[in-house]
């Protein structure tokens, strides 16, 4: 729902990362986003195309690596890709579930063009 704010943050990190380097163009960026983060990939690219105009990152393609959720039980250690509707451990029934994976939200790498020499 707040892709604009997120995309502004993303562009800021990319520009900050290449500032003072020999990078002349950023043509790609790989993001890692967990499925539990409420972000829609297409919206991020849409805003990025608008916001990046006139910067070294103009026209960069965003590639999103999605991470599936993983729930863990603090009681028995059982890991599951699904959580039960009741938030109980499906193996031992304990009520102590934590989110192991699925909340990732970071810029992993960028692909850049640098001036030679």
């Amino acid at each position: 729902m707040h892709e604009l704010a997120v995309t502004e943050g993303l562009l800021q990190i990319i520009l900050d990362q290449v500032q003072g380097t020999k990078v002349t163009r950023v043509y790609g960026a790989t993001l890692v986003i967990g499925d539990l983060a409420s972000i829609v990939d297409e919206s991020v690219q849409f805003y990025f195309d608008i916001l990046s105009k006139g910067t070294v990152a103009e026209g960069a393609r965003l590639c999103v690596t999605r991470v599936a959720p993983e729930y863990g039980c603090r009681s028995c250690g059982f890991l599951s890709a699904e959580r039960s509707q009741s938030y109980r451990c499906q193996a031992c029934g304990a009520e102590d579930i934590f989110i192991g994976k699925g909340q990732e939200f970071y810029l992993d790498s960028i692909e850049v063009e640098t001036a030679d020499g």
Binding site: I13, Q17, V23, D108, T114
Partner: peptide, 20 residues
């Protein structure tokens, strides 16, 4: 290596919401 330019991958690994 290209004509006067080089293409490469840069590792970043930074939280997208780090500014906030």
């Amino acid at each position: 290596e290209g004509k006067g330019v080089a293409l490469m991958k840069m590792d970043v690994r930074r939280n997208i919401l780090e500014a906030n």
